[in-house]
Amino acid sequence: MNGRFLRGGYLADALAQVGAAGLFFFSILGALPKSLRYVRETVRQVWFVGAMSLVIIMTCGLFVGMVLALQLYHTLSIFGGTEALGTVVALSLLRELGPVVTALLFAGRAGTSITAEIGLMRATDQLAAMEMMAVDPIAYVIAPRFLAGVIAMPLLACVFNALGIFGGHLVGVTWLGIDNGTFWGNMTANVDLWDDVVNGVWKSLAFGAVVTLIGVFQGYTTPPTSEGVAYATTRTVVFSSIVVLALDFVLTAFLM
């Protein structure tokens, strides 16, 4: 531990960053009405952060569901409860794994690209050029990306969940021989639309907002150098992962 840490310098820096990110969030909210003019840009960003993330989300969703089914089948078979496999896979995905893993993947795939893109726009004076053309970069560049992240994240989590359940079905029913009717019947009987599905959507909305905020903030405030952009993209992944997991705990405690 060095002297700076003991004096609280790092803590003060971290708090200053959190404060700056908070102010940045409010400036995005303030620019949202103006950014509604740029619907096409928002749609383009939804495509970029959402549709372009589909392959990784679908692949990971499928494998997470398959692994989950394998592990849970093994555990449930000890207690003779393998008929509950569909229910447990679905609840695990909808309430927890879907929103959280999607957010972590989203941070790695879309969060970093948002940071790098905005950071390079900063480094090449494109943001300054917009300011000089009397165009607010918060309204034109930042707010559409933020909105796109908030819109895309729940949709991606739904796709992740669907593919996860499909993966669980593949392993549970097709491979391990659980009855198809039992798998779906138990699942539909025990999964509640509001408590399980909608709560998961709320979580993914919150994660989408947080991950995208971190991505745009890191990009917008990065030093205009190649090293600065590299550090900013790394910080996006690290901070997003920590904040998503911490926020997940808080949200779970409130939504339980």
Binding site: M121, T124, D125, M133, Y140
Partner: peptide, 29 residues
């Protein structure tokens, strides 16, 4: 600033747009 033109050292063209759209950008805004 709408009455001022500024030529940056590195040109600062918007890399997502072609030449036409770069010049049209202030008009469209």
């Amino acid at each position: 600033r709408e009455c001022i033109g500024y030529l940056f050292q590195n040109s600062a063209l918007l890399t997502d747009f072609d030449v036409f759209e770069n010049v049209a950008f202030p008009l469209r805004q």
